[in-house]
Design a protein around this nucleic acid. Structure first.
Lengths: 243, 243
DNA sequence: CGATCGCTTGAGCTATCTCAACCGGCGTGG
DNA sequence: CCACGCCGGTTGAGATAGCTCAAGCGATCG
């Protein structure tokens, strides 16, 4: 169903129908350049009206909201293939911030071209809407996680999801993958305190289930991890559907 | 910015540009009928492949996921004007269920016509994507609520948001509005136990801030409620942007 | 060498959960 | 018309997951 498209600069966008030559040409024009940012940089700022859309080519980041109290809710971790900025593209302004955790390479699109995409390339517009629906699906799942799972379950689930996503985009080699985040980042994503997150990770480590240290994640016992996370290990890994 | 459109059977869809006559004609064709359902009915079922999209004309419902443990996470409450089923329309299958809380009247669209909407009416396709982005925004906010607010704050926030939304679609008269849900529904939305939700509602009642009983919600002290909910009372009520 | 940063660990505190009982209203069946 | 059962809401009491505070540790950097 999902056709990967090498030619498309928006190459991580899943496409359901092969692209025509004229579409590829349009995409080339749609793409306005590439951008490299340093780790720590803020790509998009809550409340700003960003004129750009990005596809992540390399590196990792995180998408978060800042609460009036100063707390941070991480919405999700950004990996290669993710498309960011649709919200700002389509609403007046950004509702969350995006920050680079590692150095990143991005493919930049001009937001003004978004409308012509809809007008002239309905197939691609459809793909984009599909992407938004998928995003909505994942947020719904995240909501259920925060609403109903305990600390250990949340932590496990995060590791499974991240591992699956990482595998899907080729970030994992054998049993390990790069996961260059801080424990605080994970805590902010899971709605747990740093201390508690640390203790849950320790438990997974002690039980020989998963080890995450020095930016490397190793899954020792995938089945047990899935069991804790309440995920069917055989389930078709429905991660971000991006190739 | 948002132009309401009386002629459009998809009339609750916010449109940014006035509709042409041919568009209105298309919408009439797009609409495949109206549907009335009894309270308690399930409109869409998790995992099913629903051939229909709906706009809510009257009545209220709720959108939820069922967890493997049998727990329920309410994703949001469905009010008149809401558009449901885009996920099923665009992905293969529904990721959550939708249930009617009261009797409901729905405007039904044929999902197969969705593609021709994209092909022939890019403005409307754009509107739809905008709607998906808005939905994503709200889920992001909900995530932050579950991740960082305590029981009283969550409860307060829910009441403020519901009151604002209700007002926006004309469900509130003066100080009161119909809110025909069970405490269990709210609990499942907030990720709290029924008992605790009940105690938080009791506190709001005792403090003369808000009273919700017998399906009627009355806000006694909007400012204090907003304060607890960590919402700026003067903030432009960014509820669902539907007229 | 001192300072900073991320991680780790312990100790007490409390928000929230679970269990359990009870209450009033309503619909149903005898 | 009464009795019963059920459902939604209310309340109390004990248990606990997770929080906050606080301290210490190793690595990195200027």
């Amino acid at each position: 169903m999902v056709v990967s498209c090498q030619d498309c600069p928006l190459r991580k966008l899943p496409v359901f129908t092969p692209m025509t030559k004229s579409e590829v040409a349009f995409m080339q024009k749609f793409k306005s350049g590439e951008l490299e940012v340093e780790s720590g940089a803020t790509l998009m700022m809550e409340g700003s009206n960003s004129p750009q859309l990005f596809t992540v080519l390399e590196g990792m980041g995180l998408r978060y909201k800042t609460l009036p109290t100063g707390d941070r809710q991480v919405i999700n971790l950004v990996m290669p293939g993710d498309f960011i900025g649709l919200q700002a593209g389509v609403m007046q302004e950004m509702q969350h911030s995006v920050e680079a955790t590692t150095n990143m390479k991005l493919c930049v699109f001009d937001r003004k071209a978004l409308w012509s995409l809809f007008r002239d390339h309905p197939e691609r517009a459809y793909d984009l809407t599909w992407l938004a629906a998928v995003e909505e699906h994942f947020l719904g799942e995240a909501l259920a996680v925060l609403g109903h799972l305990n600390g250990l379950q949340r932590t496990s689930r995060a590791l499974v999801r991240l591992y699956n996503r990482g595998s899907a985009v080729g970030l994992s080699d054998g049993a390990g993958m790069d996961l260059p985040y801080k424990q605080q980042d994970l805590a902010d994503a899971l709605g747990l305190s740093l201390v508690h997150t640390n203790k849950m990770l320790k438990k997974l480590r002690a039980d020989g289930i998963a080890v995450w240290r020095n930016g490397k994640l190793e899954i020792k016992d995938f089945n047990r991890l899935c069991e804790i996370a309440q995920i069917d290990a055989n389930e078709v890994a429905m991660t971000r559907p991006l190739i």
